[in-house]
């Protein structure tokens, strides 16, 4: 199996706050990694670094054999291969759903408008939002907006998808429709890194679960092992708090 992502000794600090402290991670093609851990443990920061939204302080990130943290790398080319979806959707409010999806393909990949529209139509059809193509984002529910945000990332035909707590801003009844989309992507073999608080979902979908603590991956393994038989004391504490909060 080919290696999709190789992270070594990743450090990232914001001012005096060191968020990532020498994090190592290796992901194979078609793996679905769920990252769990308390707020501030570095999940989001890791995803943002992988997409080069945040510059890193030290360490290296290699994507498909290419070191993207080396100097002089064409950042936009990297970002094309890696889709990222944010907690807060961040759809472009002045564009229709269709245009949200086709903007990057037409402007970055130079796809013709007609072909981009057709690809958008297929995506919308596949995820059941074809009737919303000409609506503006503010007319959509949170769940629908997040599904559009996922399609917008998919329209760039990325090899890797990074999902940053994509259901955290949603009303509980809207979570399932978004998780269904992610499930479909996993079935299709998409390599994914998912930061999530949905433990049931992580258990269900992950090929591997990583527990992040204080800027490193403290423990990782298959979901059954992490959720039923964690080795590290801090992992146990975290999962107990989650259970106590009724989230699992």
């Amino acid at each position: 199996m080919n290696q999709a992502i190789q992270v070594e000794g990743l450090h990232k600090r914001f001012g005096s706050l060191e968020v990532l402290r020498g994090l190592d991670l290796s992901v194979d093609d078609h793996e679905v990694i769920c990252m769990i851990g308390a707020s501030g443990s570095g999940k989001s920061t890791l995803l943002r670094c992988l997409n080069l939204v945040e510059p890193i302080d030290s360490g290296s990130i290699v994507i498909h054999g290419r070191e993207i943290t080396a100097p002089g790398v064409e950042v936009n080319a990297i970002r094309r291969q890696i889709g990222i979806v944010f907690q807060s959707f961040n759809l472009f409010p002045h564009m229709t759903v269709r245009r949200n999806i086709t903007l990057a393909p037409t402007r970055v990949l130079k796809t013709t408008r007609g072909q981009a529209d057709e690809e958008a139509r297929q995506l919308l059809d596949r995820f059941g939002l074809l009737d919303k193509a000409d609506e503006y984002p503010d007319r959509l529910s949170g769940g629908q907006q997040q599904r559009v945000a996922i399609m917008r990332a998919l329209a760039m035909q990325p090899d890797i998808m990074l999902l940053d707590e994509v259901t955290s801003a949603l009303d509980p009844e809207l979570v399932a429709e978004v998780l269904d989309v992610i499930r479909e992507l996993a079935t299709g073999g998409m390599t994914m890194l998912i930061a999530t608080h949905e433990m049931g979902f992580a258990r269900d979908i992950a090929s591997r679960v990583c527990f992040l603590d204080q800027g490193v991956i403290l423990e990782q393994g298959p979901p059954e092992q992490i959720f039923t038989d964690p080795k590290e004391e801090r992992t146990k504490q975290f999962l107990q708090r989650i259970i106590a909060a009724g989230r699992m």
Binding site: N51, V53, N76, R79, N90, F92, A104, A149, A153, M156
Partner: peptide, 8 residues
């Protein structure tokens, strides 16, 4: 951030 992450 959303626009840049799409490669724009």
């Amino acid at each position: 951030a959303a626009a840049r992450s799409l490669g724009l």
